[in-house]
């Protein structure tokens, strides 16, 4: 990765990497190592003394039903978001790939939710489902269903899933469409000559050929749902009702900043770090083995 023709060593390259390295060390590596260290400590309620307890914080976490519940909930939430937004995006991309006229217009209309901040997305959906005023609440009420996500945990979960998936559709759509458009037309034509209809071509040719993209998007969506949906949950439910929508990231924030349980919060951070590291490794392994047509 070094250029064949390059400059020799001097103070200059060090000066050039210095800003990036300085920020990395001060704001990334140092805090992460602090989290690692704190996860092995127990502090008293006033923060006056702390005791080194090895892995007690972790043992306590994994013995804690609430934490395990949060874990399960996060997995359910992430995969629901990934599945919902990918299925929707895949359908639309398949259609957009077919039509020639207006494909770019459709694309323009489908990609803007990407630019909407998670909190704003949360605000839009919470407004439409507001228990007293919401437009969907009203419609559901007319159909005989009483909606109140402030009381019903299942409904709250549904709402945060929809608000998160809505935002992700744009991203998935762009990648699916790009993947489909990179499939050589000759393959599709050959299949058509052999008598395969649009559905058959989609399931037997397009779907297998875009599977690397599908896998990549799966990882990206899970990462999004794990880490970037904090704003949505904070705006829509604050983790409630009765912790029904509390996901891992929300719990770290809640235990650390509101509950001030430093050791426990740090241990949770460390577990999250392990999750990000493994997801990143999966993502990069995929990139290396990218399928060529």
């Amino acid at each position: 990765m070094l250029k064949r023709v390059h400059f020799g060593s001097s103070w200059l390259p060090f000066a050039l990497v210095a800003p990036q390295i300085l920020i990395t060390v001060v704001f990334f590596i140092w805090p992460a190592s602090q989290a690692l260290y704190q996860s092995l400590l127990v502090e008293d309620a006033f923060g006056l003394s702390s005791e080194f307890v090895w892995f007690d914080n972790f043992i306590e976490l994994f013995g804690d039903e609430h934490y395990l519940g949060t874990f399960q909930r996060t997995i359910f939430f992430s995969f629901s978001v990934a599945f919902l937004s990918m299925a929707f995006a895949l359908t639309l991309a398949a259609m957009a790939d077919r039509v020639i006229k207006g494909a770019t217009t459709y694309r323009t209309f489908l990609i803007w939710p990407y630019a909407v901040a998670p909190v704003v997305s949360g605000a839009l959906w919470v407004f439409m489902f507001d228990p007293t005023l919401g437009i969907f609440t009203y419609t559901l009420g007319a159909l005989g269903y009483e909606w109140n996500h402030k009381l019903n945990g299942g409904e709250a979960m549904f709402l945060v899933i929809v608000a998160s998936a809505w935002k992700q559709v744009a991203y998935n759509f762009l990648f699916f469409l790009a993947a489909m458009q990179s499939i050589p037309k000759s393959l599709i034509e050959a299949a058509a000559i052999d008598g395969a209809g649009p559905t058959r071509r989609f399931t037997s040719i397009i779907l297998p050929l875009i599977s690397p993209t599908t896998f990549f998007l799966m990882v990206i969506n899970v990462v999004f749902a794990f880490f970037e949906t904090f704003g949505i949950i904070h705006a829509v439910t604050q983790g409630g009702p009765a912790k029904a929508t509390e996901i891992l990231v929300y719990k770290v924030f809640n235990d650390g900043f509101i509950g001030l349980d430093l050791g426990g919060s740090a241990a949770q951070s460390v577990i999250l770090m392990l999750i990000v590291i493994s997801l990143t490794v999966i993502q990069f392994r995929y990139v290396e083995k990218k399928v060529e047509y």
Partner: peptide
């Protein structure tokens, strides 16, 4: 591998 979300407090 270290998004803000996992190192909130120490940062």
């Amino acid at each position: 591998m270290l998004p803000v979300e996992v190192r909130i407090l120490p940062t």
